[in-house]
């Protein structure tokens, strides 16, 4: 435990400064200081993907990422993938495919998949599955999620 400090970070394009113990997990800062409740707590150990956000475009587990480590970096949460008028393509295809049951894992899936499509625009089905293996779903919506990601890919062109 260390003394509270001011930490500057950019989330969804907006600069923020929060005062907290710099070891605080990014997840809690997003949810409790910035009011961005899209990323979820699932395990606290980086094993389920429910808390995934993008840091400089790469998916990271925000539950075990200390906030000091993202100082000055760009963080994107599910809320920043698109906006009200212009949702991310994946958010549209998830609706088209009804790609969830409870939806608790959904924001982590979307963030992970968005990074995947940036990295590999022509990824195949096996590649989608591999990329999502770190994101757990207990309801059994996997195949719908895979279809939604593949459809977002196809529809890019």
């Amino acid at each position: 435990m260390t003394a509270d400090q001011a930490v500057s970070l950019v989330v969804n394009g907006t600069a923020h400064e929060v005062v907290c113990d710099p070891d605080t997990p990014l997840l809690y800062v997003l949810r409790n200081d910035l009011g961005l409740l899209g990323a979820k707590f699932g395990c606290g150990l980086g094993l389920c993907g429910a808390c995934n956000v993008l840091v400089d475009g790469h998916p990271v587990h925000s539950c075990d990422t200390p906030v000091w480590s993202v100082a000055g970096k760009s963080v994107t949460t599910v809320e920043g993938l698109g906006n009200e008028g212009r949702p991310h393509r994946l958010q549209e295809t998830f609706i088209d495919e009804q790609a969830l049951q409870c939806g608790y894992c959904t924001s982590g899936m979307l963030v992970t998949a968005a990074a995947l499509l940036e990295r590999e625009p022509d990824v195949d089905e096996a590649g989608v599955r591999r990329a999502l293996d770190g994101n757990l779903c207990r309801c059994g919506a996997h195949n719908r999620i895979v279809r939604a990601v593949l459809c977002a890919r196809t529809c890019r062109s």
Partner: peptide
């Protein structure tokens, strides 16, 4: 409930 959930709003 799906649109709110994919937007991270619900």
């Amino acid at each position: 409930d799906v649109p709110g959930k994919v937007a991270g709003r619900r």
